[in-house]
Design a protein around this nucleic acid. Structure first.
Length: 741
DNA sequence: GTTCTAGAAC
DNA sequence: GTTCTAGAAC
């Protein structure tokens, strides 16, 4: 493996600890932490845990407690916060703060002398409900009780905090492990310390993929994690309900950590990501063939050194020559497409425009590190505002070719608040353009060497950013062990304590040695198709039945209507009292993904045929309601429209996938599909990960721990359908029937 | 898509 | 011990 030996992080213009730049300031800056979470999400517990061991002075401002027995007000909280901050104390705002509006006053009220953070405890509704029910002493009925309704209602209005509200840092916790990591991080934060800025945590559930990966890794002694607050979706909801014993929470978290920590390294969507343009190929006229070889060579060298971090080559146009060259060469070398891929888009808008979250972006700059010129350099300096120029000046006055300079981006920069970019890495490549300084006059021997150096410096710079987060992660885990011992005293006997401690420590040590260990070769290919090269999965033999029915209806029984365009049949395994399928009779129209503008008429035909059947059933039984729609990713080949009654009263409805395939965004209402295809030429698709979401009643939205309990609930739930479903004819009712009855 | 079943959760 | 889920095989 000779090619791996050349570069460690050494001799380059990179700040070894770019995130800890707060050191030189060496003055206390109080922090305002706005906690965000429903009742029962653990906001008060969070504060208690941190304040118990922290060396930084904290004040908890709790709306429930501030009113001396009476209900407190937001204004009381605001005043108390201002006065504590003035005293140099750091502050937790312990109230729900679920909407942007609720939070805005707190952010507005304090100036730049205070660092503003948000910590969102975005835990499963079920857990919050069970806790709040328990806390208020109500017994039993976790699903139907008033607490459930209240929490569910509050959560429907939930807006997770965004950087553009004005925070330097946001931490989103989506399970108990995330919460524990955040507690440890804030506990460890001394009066002079600073946490890395940016957005940490993830919005979308991805549990299915992660569980699968975790299982795989469990067997293989996996590589370990990066980010203290990387989202892990795998925690089992049921385990919350039953294992939750507050007195043991810290100990349990440690155990859970062992079980789930594996997943944290593979939270790919949330992995540290560097977006970089091709160096020197634009204005510096470097040969594209040679440049693409070097990009792929360097990516191959680094991609496995970077743990779960991702590298993304960005260019403006989808037709970019360099992107396609690199794509082809990377594919040839079988580079893991989850860890390296190309992306067409503006590097200053990757998140807001392309939904791609990159915490670092590379800027191909000029030797003076000045804004302007053109291309990427102008665009990035422009988008980042004067903050980048100032921060860059503080680091260096110039840059030589083949080098990179890491610049932490101040949170005042729009690139930070809008795009979540925390670092810009300036890099200067070799120049082959006689119109530009230091032209190499086609000396490609030297040029290639410099270009290689440039990519090495760039990726090393990125590695140093990633590693700083690793360090922090390590630090906070060390604190777990410490904290555990202290919290432990008095509640456990010594022997047990020592044993647990050793286990945790051993585990941690193993974890952090493996920072640059590469992932197993199978991991990357278990595709979610969301980024990079997607592989269209082949249809199994069992998946051909509908295709055959559509093409040769005469060979099948069970068909209730047939025309040139469609075949209608009862679903062989109906998931409700009435469940039928309208098949499209078009060759090679296997699924919704294949549907384009030319199929709009067919979609409308399918819809009207389905609607006609729904109306027929309604005339026979007016208590039914129907939905018509498609699965985002069907299991059976041949485009088919589901017409399904909303009772879901069927023995064939057996598992989570069954339920969520009809009651999550995975189910695309026919009316919406028709609109989207008419307007955009394609329908929005949700990937299969949503199928492992928690189980929620399709009427009252209450959460349920398993299928039998859910079914018991829906058999009697009379709540009206959510407003969304009552619009645009998504739900079909009997004529004259009120939507709420 | 379903069935079967190991093993996790209760 | 029983219930329930999730993965593999088909």
């Amino acid at each position: 493996m000779g090619q791996f030996s050349g570069y460690t992080v050494e001799a380059m213009d990179v700040d070894p600890e770019p995130n800890l730049g707060g050191k030189d300031e060496a003055k206390e800056k109080p922090i305002l932490v706005i906690l965000v979470g429903a009742p029962g999400s653990g906001k008060s517990t969070f504060c208690d845990h941190v304040m118990r061991l922290a060396t930084r002075p904290w004040v908890r401002i709790c709306q429930d407690a501030i009113g001396n027995g009476k209900a407190g007000t937001k204004n009381q909280c605001l005043t108390a916060a201002a006065s504590a901050l003035k005293d140099g104390k750091s502050v937790f705002i312990d109230r729900c703060n679920l909407s942007r509006e609720q939070r805005a006053d707190f952010v507005k009220r304090v100036g730049p002398e205070v660092e503003k953070h948000a910590v969102a405890l975005d835990l499963p509704a079920k857990l919050c409900i069970s806790r709040s029910v328990k806390r208020t002493g109500h017994e039993g009925n976790l699903q139907g009780g008033k607490a459930a309704a209240v929490v569910n209602r509050m959560l429907q209005k939930k807006e997770l905090p965004k950087l553009n509200e004005g925070y330097a840092r946001i931490t989103v916790c989506q399970d108990k492990k995330d919460v524990q990591a955040a507690i440890n991080m804030y506990t460890a934060l001394g009066p002079l310390d600073k946490l890395p800025p940016g957005f940490f945590g993830q919005k979308n559930s991805d549990s299915k993929v992660q569980q699968g990966i975790m299982k795989f890794l469990k067997k293989k002694d996996p590589p370990e994690c990066s980010d203290a607050v990387v989202y892990i979706a795998s925690e089992n909801i049921q385990s919350h309900a039953t294992k939750e014993k507050d007195s043991n929470q810290v100990l349990e978290s440690c155990e859970e950590q062992k079980k789930t920590s594996v997943g944290s390294s593979i939270s790919l969507e949330n992995a540290p990501t560097l977006a970089f343009p091709s160096i020197s190929t634009a204005d510096f006229h470097f040969n594209l063939e040679k440049a693409s070889d070097i990009i792929v060579e360097k990516v191959e060298e680094y991609v496995n050194k970077l743990g779960n971090a991702r590298l993304v080559l960005v260019d403006l146009s989808q037709n970019s020559k360099i992107l396609s060259l690199v794509r082809a060469k990377a594919a040839e070398k079988n580079i893991d497409s989850k860890k390296f891929f190309t992306f067409a888009g503006n590097i200053t808008n990757l998140y807001s425009d392309g939904g791609l979250h990159c915490n670092a972006i590379a800027n191909v700059t000029n030797w003076r590190l000045k804004p302007g010129g053109g291309g990427v350099n102008a665009a990035i300096f422009n988008a980042a505002g004067p903050a980048l120029e100032t921060a860059t000046k503080a680091k260096a006055k110039s840059i030589s070719s083949g080098k990179a300079i890491v610049v932490p981006l101040p949170s005042s920069s729009p690139l930070f608040s809008r795009e979540g970019v925390t670092h810009v890495i300036h890099v200067l490549g070799p120049n082959m353009n006689p119109q530009r300084p230091n032209c190499l006059n086609n000396d490609y021997v030297n040029g290639c060497k410099i270009l290689r150096d440039a990519y090495s410096s760039l990726f090393d710079g990125f590695a140093s950013i990633v590693r700083t987060q690793e360090e922090l992660c390590k630090y906070s885990f060390e604190k777990i062990t410490e904290g555990e011992v202290q919290l432990d005293q008095g509640s456990r006997n010594g022997g047990q304590k020592a044993k647990r401690e050793t286990v945790c420590e051993a585990d941690m040590n193993k974890k952090y040695k493996s920072f640059v260990k590469e992932l197993g070769p199978n991991v990357g290919s278990s595709g979610d198709g969301s980024t990079g090269g997607q592989i269209t999965k082949a249809w199994g033999a069992w998946a051909q039945a509908l295709y055959d029915t559509a093409m040769h209806p005469e060979r099948h029984k069970n068909i209730i209507e047939m025309s040139d365009d469609v075949v209608v049949l009862n679903d062989l395994y109906p998931k409700a009292q009435k469940h039928l399928l309208v098949l499209a009779r078009v060759e090679s129209l296997d699924r919704l993904e294949d549907v384009h503008k030319e199929h709009v008429t067919l979609l409308k035909t399918m819809h009207s045929v389905g609607l006609k059947w729904a109306e027929k059933f309604l005339s026979e039984n007016s208590s039914l309601t129907f939905r018509l729609g498609y699965h985002s990713v069907p299991s059976m080949r041949q485009l088919h429209l589901h017409v399904i009654s909303q009772d879901f009263d069927s023995n064939h409805l057996k598992n989570k996938k069954h339920w969520n395939s009809f009651n999550s965004p995975f189910f695309r209402d026919s009316v919406d599909v028709i609109d989207e295809v008419s307007q955009n030429g394609k329908a929005v698709l949700k990937d299969e990960n949503v199928l492992s979401m928690e189980l929620r009643c399709h009427r009252c939205q209450s959460a349920h721990p398993n299928i039998p309990r859910l079914k018991a609930h829906i058999s009697s739930c009379q709540a009206s359908f959510p407003a969304f479903l009552l619009q645009n004819g998504r739900i079909v009712f009997s004529e004259g029937k009120d939507a709420n009855s």
